[in-house]
């Protein structure tokens, strides 16, 4: 049996290989080799390209650990990721619940599509659109001053809250999507059973609905937290001078300072942090799948 299985799997690979090879070769050249090269470069003193002398060094990592600036910025980015994720849970989960359990039929389909539509449209443009709303003399400022009897100046532009608002706007559809998928799978009779046995709405929510939809919450949180920690365009546009984060420092190494080995080391440290976070989230996700 075992021998037969091994033969079958070897011939399976032979038939599959011509179909698989082009796609996986492409992924290797454009994703996996570059990621390996990044690790390699992060241990170099200089790029071995323009004939400049180079040597192996731990200096790029030493720079991260000896200068508190990088660690501070990494912590600031992690905090940003945490805050954005929390806001997405607070805003997105109730919306996913209403979509899955209150709305029915065609209106549910249409509204679901409307919620996730922006998330597939251009992220850069959506961040720019908040600049129109948040700046002084912008729509928020004008509208509030038209309603309120006293004069106030709303100028959220180039501030930490502006970065949070823009990022939550960008990523909240993820949370709605993942939570909706798990909430939808909860059998309504479970909720009814809980209610008829005397549980209050809040108890049903705490004991039945939230535990059963936990995989969706975790998946959404991972999908949001990871890219937010690595964000640089959003803090640049909406944060201005207050928008210096770990991602913007990496960007600087590649487009302004041209210290690529340091940039590679900083990128690799971020990758390690990301992988640890995904590893922590994966048991919950695997249980869902």
């Amino acid at each position: 049996m075992a021998v037969e299985g091994a033969v079958a799997s070897r011939s399976g690979l032979r038939s599959a290989l011509p179909l698989l090879a082009p796609a996986y070769l492409w992924l290797t050249v454009a994703i996996f080799l570059p990621l390996s090269a990044m690790v390699f470069f992060s241990f170099m003193t200089d790029l071995p390209l323009s004939g400049k002398p180079w040597a192996f060094t731990l200096g790029n990592y030493a720079a991260f650990f000896s200068q508190s600036l990088y660690l501070t910025l990494l912590l600031a980015s992690l905090r940003l990721g945490l805050e954005v994720t929390l806001w997405c849970v607070v805003i997105g989960y109730p919306a996913a619940y209403v979509l899955a359990k209150v709305l029915k039929g065609r209106s549910r389909e249409a509204i679901f599509l409307l919620v996730i539509l922006p998330f597939w449209s251009n992220g850069l443009v959506r961040i720019f659109s908040w600049a129109m709303v948040l700046r002084e003399g912008g729509i928020l400022d004008t509208a509030l001053n038209a309603v309120l009897p006293f004069k106030i100046n709303i100028d959220l532009m180039y501030s930490y809250p502006a970065v949070i608002i823009g990022l939550v706007h960008s990523y909240v559809p993820y949370m709605v999507l993942t939570c909706y998928l798990t909430l939808q799978a909860i059998d309504d009779s479970l909720i009814e059973a809980g209610r008829s046995l005397g549980a209050s709405r809040l108890q049903v929510l705490k004991r039945v609905i939230i535990p059963l939809s936990m995989p969706g919450l975790v998946a959404g949180a991972a999908l949001i937290f990871v890219p937010v920690v690595g964000s640089f365009m959003e803090p640049r546009i909406l944060g201005g001078r207050t928008g210096t984060f770990y991602g913007t420092v990496i960007e600087d190494q590649f487009v302004a300072v041209f210290n690529w080995p340091l940039g590679a080391a900083l990128s690799f440290i971020l990758l390690a942090v990301v992988l640890v976070i995904l590893a922590i989230a994966s048991p919950v996700l695997r249980r869902a799948a």
Partner: peptide, 20 residues
């Protein structure tokens, strides 16, 4: 990994490798 790793990391890694 290509979906989950932030584009900042993938993009800078591609830059380094393609240049190299």
């Amino acid at each position: 990994p290509p979906i989950a790793i932030p584009w900042l990391i993938t993009g800078t890694a591609m830059l380094i490798f393609f240049f190299g």
